[in-house]
Nucleic acid binder design. Structure first.
Lengths: 240, 240
DNA sequence: TAGTGGTCTAGACCACGCT
DNA sequence: GCGTGGTCTAGACCACTAT
């Protein structure tokens, strides 16, 4: 007599595998044990392990390479660019963004910040303000808010040496992997400050992208608001 | 001695199944033969058919219902709303759009229209201009361009009786199923005409969504440019 | 009760990457 | 040559839907 199964075996296996990535037992870039080994360990067939791994590959948490093995996904430049960066030049060429950090400060979360990041009121956060370039011209002003508890010592980093791809930094330095993100887009008018940074006149149209990034464990790990000059670029979205 | 296989069996099967939907042998809403029957017909195992059907389900071309069967996907109100309509109220509630058709005219495609819809220059197109309401207020001005050859007799339809969900109409009346779409978003300023329709002042920010919709056969079947008032709504995008 | 898709297994063989 | 993932098969059993 067994209890009715809440989840099929391959989903339980998938969850078990994911847990090992969340708790840091397997880190980004690591190779997983081969399928027969995992099957033996979990007491399921290789087919069941395959299905679990296939679903993990589908959401980009692992990468499968025939002949080599299955690896925990890393935030590479390519992934940041093709997966999490949706601005494309109007000529269809992907613009490679560059960055210039304008400021970095820590402080207590505002009500809005704690709401968006699901933090207790007043929790410490780090705020970044940076300018991003596309094809050498200022095109995006970004305000980024991070829960300080997740990124210990962030505030003491050298502001000028912060890399362009922050997600890679989060992952390498604090083991925080951005697994997915939810974006909200609006059209807005450039304020005087944005206009100055972007070389626009005040009142020019900008695309505002408000993004919450979620870590492997499902909790928010970054709030980012980007205001973009879309006069020579556009945001792409594929609908299936 | 066999030629090296270009595509695995399950992909060939998937393509064969898709062909039957493209050529109208199976129409939207039809139930497909059961898996063992398809397996016998194609001379493959049931597992291979399953894999082909699973991939078709993943891109929303078929719907699988346990105990009932596998069906060719239909454009329902829900699908239009949750899949192809990305504007959401700032309170998080999905706004149900209403529509008012402003004009419908046919004519020869401009250079730009034929480029976007991959038509020979001067091909006949139908142009629609409509206003969409969210929560009872005008919020979107849409310009839609259709290749007239795909939608025979469209121009003779009664403009006022056109339904809100055009994709369902395309599918039911002409067998044209919108399988996927590519959207480009920009921020723009409302011109005098848009402003009048949307009840905004000229120069207010609007979100411009430029969408090419593709039919099952992979060819463009609609070009739509929507200019949206995003003061109380936003466009949502999920990144995985 | 019959028919459908959903899960799970076991095993054969292929394709790829390395050494 | 060996170990990896990728494909394909055959068959058992479960869960859901209809009649």
């Amino acid at each position: 007599m067994e209890m009715p199964r809440a989840q099929p075996l391959y989903r339980q296996t998938k969850a078990a595998l994911m847990r090992r990535m969340v708790d840091g037992r397997w880190r980004a870039g690591d190779m997983l044990p081969a399928e027969p080994a995992l099957a033996a360990e979990f007491g399921v067939s290789q087919g069941t392990v395959r299905r679990a791994l296939d679903e993990l590959a589908q959401i980009n948490l692992v990468v499968r390479r025939q002949g080599k093995g299955t690896f925990v996904a890393e935030h590479t430049r390519e992934r940041a660019l093709f997966h999490f960066f949706h601005l494309v030049g109007d000529d269809g060429k992907r613009a490679l963004p560059g960055s210039r950090m304008l400021s970095m400060k820590a402080g207590a979360a505002t009500r809005e910040e704690s709401r968006r990041l699901k933090l207790a009121a007043g929790t410490r956060v780090v705020r970044l303000h940076r300018l991003r370039m596309l094809d050498g011209r200022a095109a995006i002003v970004e305000r980024i808010v991070l829960p300080a508890s997740l990124y210990d010592g962030f505030e003491r980093l050298d502001r000028a040496s912060l890399p362009n791809e922050l997600y890679k930094l989060y992952q390498e330095r604090w083991g925080v992997t951005v697994a997915r993100a939810a974006e909200k887009l609006k059209s807005a008018l450039a304020g005087p400050e944005d206009a100055a940074h972007l070389g626009l006149r005040s009142g020019a149209p900008v695309l505002e992208i408000d993004r919450i990034a979620y870590a492997l464990d499902g909790n928010p790990c970054e709030w980012r608001v980007s205001r973009c000059d879309t006069s020579a670029h556009h945001y792409v979205s594929e609908v299936v």
